[in-house]
Design a protein around this nucleic acid. Structure first.
Lengths: 329, 329
DNA sequence: GATTTTGTGTCAAGCGTTTATCATAAGGGG
DNA sequence: CCCCTTATGATAAACGCTTGACACAAAATC
């Protein structure tokens, strides 16, 4: 029984002080004697009081909520990214609202509006289907993943060109005569497209035959990868090395090779991307380009935080990648 | 130029009506002519107005926010679950606040308090380290995953006992003479412990040698699985079948077997649990017990929603599991 | 032509906080 | 004894919105 919500008034009454005093201890301002502070804390405890953040937010015009929009948290890369973003957000005192756009333009727009309506302090965008100008008049701290929207909006990324170079060179070094790159849709203006640029440039420079396979727009539907990989091997049975756009795709390559009796790494070599935790669970274990997911998530939160506090931030935030050699090359 | 936030007053002024009228069109109540409705919509569009949900929430005492607390969204099972929860939450008009407890009791408590403070409409708990009474006086719609806290708090689960039976019988049917079950820590009062009960009962009934390996409390640190599996094979080199507590653990078993040169499924058979999407990416593909993750997520949201609307809900919500036979048995 | 329905306005309270202002009072230092 | 610091209270406004009460007028209905 008892009223539904206990408010600061109830605490004040119970402690025998005014709401002003309670608010003072709550916010640590003005003079408060140790005795009343104790009384107030005790009353709060007894009533199981929790300050209404909604009311506070309304007044302060600050919610300490961050929105994060990503294609789907069911994809290992984004699930790990989401984990670290939430982790560091929490350290900075922010809560996180999770949005899976599924790369659906309508949904993405609705999420952005929803987050605006909920007065989030900032948005971390890892899903990009909207036109650039949709973001520009957002008047909200924003950080972008793997896409440069303008000269003003900071983004975090890792060195995609280097990643592409590293992967391609490795495949060639290991003796592949014809290599393939399975990558996301190149029409999406993502920085990840740099990987393909590097792939093509490296293959050409080293005079190796190469082919690029582009996925659909909806890149993150894991169950579709197999078909894509199968098609690749049908159309290009002479491919000796595959540079996959993600570890999940690479795992799919390994699986298809196994089904078709192609030995890895003897007949076909594979390098993945991301170094997500499943990369060390495949058989053989996956050679891959490691993105520093934790650092990227941390950095994204920092960049948002600094913007919220009106601090200057760099626009380009590109972290290094590393080659992790395991069993598939 | 341009004040920071545009409010309902600005819209009213721009449209040449009062805030009451704007509010009326916003909430579809009272009489409104098509003409003014249009005027108001146009003004909102021109000003890029988005109603302040914080203010609305304060008044309505309803935020349409759901909290979801799970061990870590970086684990495939929880990442898929989180995806579906968010998906269906969105369909019901809820937003989702994501919390990774990392099975840390302190963090879990802080998250619960934080969610209370933010006036969420309900909490979906998939992480359970707190004492039962911490939840009982929460006075908030709650749904639990895989744990029965009391006779009042609804939970969703899948048929763990059946899952354990199915897996164990399969291993025995396929000829394993000695089988192992790698499971979560049995001290945590989880319904998943039923799997081990079924494992033991089945093994005994069918007179097969068996051994149970318990993980630490912190079950979801993927990198720790290898050591555990290695230890298992050192202590029990004669094990012929492994029933893993999750597909991730099963993948680790496959990997270790490969390293030690034990052939799967010839020498060792493995069955996983969950049927997470990586289960079909291992080599060979994993035989596993499928939990209906989407249905579980959907059901959790429904149960919360019904509670919020003061509808009656069943306490026990146990969904069926199925055996998915692939290449590891 | 009387009545009802429709459309809009005015005003004010309230959601749970914070915060500024002012008032009051006790105790200590000079 | 005066002043300053410390400690608390009383009061009210504000955050952006919804809602109810009431008023008034035009249009539709009988």
């Amino acid at each position: 029984m008892g009223m539904a919500t206990v408010t600061i008034k109830d605490v004040a009454k119970k402690a025998g002080v005014t709401v002003t005093t309670v608010s003072r201890v709550l916010n640590n301002r003005g003079y408060i004697s140790e005795a009343t502070r104790e009384k107030v804390y005790r009353a709060m405890k007894e009533l199981n009081y929790q300050p209404n953040e909604i009311a506070r937010s309304l007044l302060r015009r600050r919610t300490h909520i961050l929105g994060i929009i990503l294609p789907t948290v069911a994809h290992p890369f984004f699930s790990e990214l989401a984990f670290f973003i939430e982790y560091y957000a929490y350290e900075y005192g922010y809560k996180v609202m999770l949005c899976n756009s599924q790369l659906d333009q309508k949904k993405e727009k609705e999420y952005v509006d929803m987050l605006r309506g909920n007065q989030v302090d900032g948005i971390i965008m890892a899903s990009h289907t909207l036109e650039v100008d949709e973001y520009l008049n957002l008047k909200l701290p924003l950080v972008t993943f793997d896409r440069q929207l303008s000269q003003d909006i900071p983004f975090v990324s890792s060195d995609n060109y280097l990643g592409g170079t590293l992967a391609t060179n490795l495949l060639i070094d290991k003796g592949c005569r014809k290599i393939a790159h399975i990558c996301g849709n190149l029409r999406l203006n993502m920085l990840a497209n740099q990987r393909n640029k590097a792939f093509v440039a490296t293959a050409q420079a080293r005079k190796v035959e190469y082919v690029t396979i582009e996925t659909d727009l909806n890149v993150f539907d894991i169950s579709q990868y197999d078909k894509l990989v199968l098609k690749l091997f049908e159309e290009h049975p002479d491919v000796e090395g595959v540079f996959a756009g993600s570890d999940v795709i690479a795992a799919s390559v390994i699986k298809v090779c196994h089904q078709k009796g192609k030995k890895i790494p003897e007949e076909i070599k594979v390098v993945g991307y991301d170094d997500v935790s499943i990369a060390s669970l495949t058989t053989p274990q996956l050679t891959t380009i490691r993105q520093p997911i934790e650092e990227m998530g941390k950095l994204a939160v920092e960049l948002i935080h600094r913007q919220i506090n009106k601090e200057k931030v760099a626009v380009e935030n590109v972290l290094p990648v590393t080659l992790v050699e395991r069993g598939t090359t």
